[in-house]
């Protein structure tokens, strides 16, 4: 069983393990006050979650068992909530923060609960949940970019040295890619399976970029990156 699992590991999950291990270690090495910051907790949580569900998914593959439910539950639900939580931490306007929190609530009501109640089958390919989640994440990313460019409080920040900018940019591209793939999922699976795997690689690369930025945010060598938003409302 263990040997089968180890054999199933590929470059993607190894890279995810490396970033998660380094990122979580970096999180615990952060000064106490920075460890208490919610954004750092969410980013570390995101790394822990991805390594957990990817391990579970790979483990199920090694047992030749269906693993679609793992991605449906963890990637299309828990990861979406964590990512939305990360984005809302970088949004300054209180109303817009609540809009993003509202997205989480709407996703729970219209996707999380139906999944829990069995209305959405547990081995569903997750098109519905993912489209809902990706749309909310893409809209939330645009809310952040709108503020970054137009809000005066972001004037003093250099986007290149602002970890929020990189985290949210990589999230935007990860979920834009995943959105496009899920729209064409049924068509690709039924007609061009090889092509589907190629497309999956694009999403995996985007995901690796995102988790790399998660690690960089937590490591923040010599304070190069600014992790705090200029004004915190709460």
């Amino acid at each position: 069983m263990v040997v089968g699992f180890l054999k199933s590991l590929d470059y993607y999950i190894i890279i995810i393990y490396v970033f998660s291990l380094l990122g979580i270690t970096a999180y615990f090495r952060l000064p106490k006050e920075r460890r208490k910051q919610r954004v750092n907790k969410f980013v570390a949580g995101s790394l822990a979650l991805v390594s957990f569900y990817e391990s579970l998914a790979y483990f199920l593959v090694s047992l030749h068992t269906v693993n679609a439910w793992v991605y449906l539950l963890f990637f299309h639900h828990f990861a979406v909530y964590l990512n939305l939580a990360i984005i809302q931490e970088f949004v300054l306007n209180k109303k817009r923060k609540w809009i993003i929190r509202g997205f989480i609530l709407v996703h729970i009501v219209f996707s999380g609960l139906p999944l829990l109640l069995g209305i959405i089958p547990i081995n569903d390919n997750g098109e519905y949940s993912s489209i809902l989640g990706s749309t909310f994440i893409i809209v939330s990313c645009w809310i952040f970019f709108y503020e970054l460019v137009l809000d005066d409080r972001y004037l003093a920040i250099k986007p290149i040295r602002f970890s929020g900018f990189w985290l949210i940019t990589s999230l935007l591209f990860l979920f834009s890619g995943s959105f496009m793939i899920l729209i064409s999922y049924s068509y690709l699976i039924n007609n061009y399976l090889e092509m589907y795997y190629v497309v999956i690689e694009v999403t995996r690369t985007s995901a690796m970029i995102f988790y790399a930025f998660c690690f960089i945010t937590l490591a923040n060598w010599k304070g190069y990156f600014q992790t705090q938003t200029p004004v915190s409302y709460e």
Binding site: F145, V149, T169, F173, V202, T205
Partner: peptide
């Protein structure tokens, strides 16, 4: 898809440059 990937990467780069430039 290779060209698609390159286009995607270019789009991402352009987006980053665009936001940084606007800011």
């Amino acid at each position: 898809f290779l060209f698609g990937g390159i286009f995607f990467a270019l789009l991402m780069t352009l987006f980053v440059v665009g936001i940084v430039f606007a800011h």
